[in-house]
């Protein structure tokens, strides 16, 4: 690929997809619940990166609609993370003495 094609928009979009891929890989192959929760967050950040980078074009102001979507997404992501962590805590509280599944 030509280096001149390597605009910041493409670079940041590609890094967003790379973050999504890393998160997906972690979600599948790492067994610990904390890592799975982290992985889902990393995937989310990747998607947000794609949205934010596609909002930015040369010569015009950034598109606010993807920004608003990302803000919504961040809040929803923290809600999901907190729910997952709370369930983990309750599962551990209820656990028999072996502490693991």
């Amino acid at each position: 690929m030509m280096l001149s094609q390597l605009t910041p928009e493409i670079m940041y979009s590609a890094s967003g997809i790379a973050l999504f891929g890393i998160g997906l890989l972690g979600l599948i192959i790492v067994p610990h619940i904390f890592r799975k929760i982290l992985a889902i967050n990393v995937m989310g950040v990747g998607i947000f990166m794609l949205l934010v980078s596609s909002a930015k074009r040369a010569n015009i102001d950034a598109d606010p609609v993807p920004h608003a979507m990302v803000l919504t997404g961040i809040v929803v992501a923290v809600a999901g993370t907190a729910l997952a962590l709370f369930l983990v805590k309750k599962i551990n509280d209820l656990a028999p003495s072996e502490k693991s599944q």
Partner: peptide
């Protein structure tokens, strides 16, 4: 993929436990 979820806190320090075989991980 979600069948074996580990909740124990220090299990993470033993990487071989509950983890997929290397071949499958590489394939993924």
């Amino acid at each position: 993929m979600f069948k074996e979820i580990i909740f124990k806190e220090d299990a993470i320090n033993k990487p071989e436990k509950g983890r997929l075989p290397t071949s499958i991980a590489v394939l993924c």
